[in-house]
Amino acid sequence: MTSFTHDTAPTQYAEGGGIRFAYRRFGGPGRPPLVFYQHFMGTMDDHDPALSDAFAGDREVILFNNTGVASSSGIVPDTIEAMARDAITFTDALGLTTIDVVGHSMGGLVAQEVALARPDLVRRLVLVGTGPRGGEGIGARPDWVGKLFARKYQRQEDMWLPILFAPTRTSQAAGRAYIERIVARADRDTPVSDQSIAAQRAAIAAYGAAKDPSYANLKGLELPVLVVNGTDDIIIPTINSYILQQFLPDAELILYPDAGHGSHFQYPRLFVRHARILLDD
Rank of each mutant, 00 (worst) to 15 (best):
residue 46 D to V: 07
residue 84 A to H: 04
residue 257 P to M: 08
residue 219 K to Q: 15
residue 180 E to Y: 05
residue 112 Q to K: 05
residue 28 G to T: 11
residue 81 E to Y: 13
residue 68 G to P: 02
residue 121 L to P: 09
residue 116 L to G: 04
residue 221 L to C: 10
residue 71 S to C: 05
residue 187 D to P: 00
residue 146 G to V: 09
residue 167 P to N: 04
residue 82 A to I: 01
residue 149 F to R: 01
residue 70 A to E: 01
residue 197 I to P: 00
residue 225 V to R: 12
residue 58 D to C: 06
residue 160 W to T: 03
residue 92 D to K: 06
residue 103 G to D: 10
residue 259 A to L: 11
residue 41 M to I: 13
residue 107 G to K: 13
residue 262 G to P: 10
residue 216 A to K: 07
residue 221 L to N: 03
residue 4 F to G: 01
residue 188 R to D: 03
residue 238 T to E: 13
residue 104 H to M: 03
residue 107 G to C: 10
residue 187 D to Q: 14
residue 50 A to D: 12
residue 44 M to L: 15
residue 11 T to D: 13
residue 158 D to R: 08
residue 169 R to T: 13
residue 45 D to M: 06
residue 16 G to R: 00
residue 173 A to S: 12
residue 37 Y to H: 15
residue 114 V to S: 09
residue 74 G to V: 07
residue 208 G to C: 05
residue 159 M to V: 14
residue 263 S to N: 10
residue 180 E to T: 12
residue 221 L to T: 06
residue 265 F to A: 13
residue 281 D to S: 15
residue 18 G to D: 09
residue 68 G to C: 02
residue 176 R to L: 10
residue 119 P to L: 08
residue 57 G to P: 00
residue 189 D to W: 00
residue 84 A to V: 11
residue 98 T to N: 09
residue 199 A to N: 15
residue 191 P to G: 04
residue 227 V to N: 09
residue 113 E to L: 04
residue 179 I to R: 08
residue 200 Q to L: 02
residue 72 S to I: 03
residue 207 Y to C: 06
residue 140 A to G: 01
residue 264 H to Q: 12
residue 276 R to W: 01
residue 235 I to T: 07
residue 128 V to N: 05
residue 156 Q to C: 00
residue 177 A to F: 03
residue 10 P to K: 11
residue 23 Y to N: 02
residue 105 S to T: 07
residue 68 G to L: 07
residue 95 G to Y: 04
residue 194 D to P: 00
residue 114 V to A: 08
residue 238 T to P: 04
residue 35 V to W: 01
residue 183 V to Q: 10
residue 12 Q to C: 14
residue 211 K to Q: 14
residue 185 R to T: 05
residue 145 V to K: 13
residue 258 D to W: 11
residue 160 W to G: 02
residue 240 N to I: 08
residue 64 F to M: 09
residue 275 A to R: 03
residue 152 K to L: 09
residue 188 R to W: 08
residue 277 I to V: 14
residue 65 N to A: 07
residue 209 A to V: 01
residue 185 R to M: 04
residue 92 D to N: 09
residue 76 V to T: 15
residue 51 L to F: 14
residue 59 R to Y: 02
residue 154 Q to E: 13
residue 174 A to W: 00
residue 56 A to H: 00
residue 31 R to I: 00
residue 199 A to F: 01
residue 123 R to D: 13
residue 122 V to F: 09
residue 29 P to E: 14
residue 100 D to F: 05
residue 276 R to M: 08
residue 275 A to H: 03
residue 116 L to D: 03
residue 213 P to Y: 04
residue 222 E to A: 15
residue 54 A to F: 05
residue 130 T to K: 10
residue 262 G to E: 12
residue 56 A to Y: 07
residue 194 D to V: 05
residue 237 P to A: 06
residue 190 T to M: 13
residue 5 T to P: 07
residue 36 F to H: 10
residue 215 Y to F: 15
residue 83 M to Y: 00
residue 125 L to M: 08
residue 148 L to D: 02
residue 257 P to W: 08
residue 45 D to E: 14
residue 204 I to N: 05
residue 148 L to M: 13
residue 79 T to C: 02
residue 75 I to R: 13
residue 146 G to S: 11
residue 228 V to E: 03
residue 51 L to Q: 10
residue 252 E to F: 01
residue 198 A to K: 14
residue 109 L to W: 07
residue 147 K to Q: 15
residue 178 Y to R: 07
residue 257 P to L: 09
residue 45 D to S: 13
residue 169 R to W: 05
residue 56 A to Q: 05
residue 203 A to I: 04
residue 208 G to M: 01
residue 66 N to D: 11
residue 57 G to I: 01
residue 97 T to G: 06
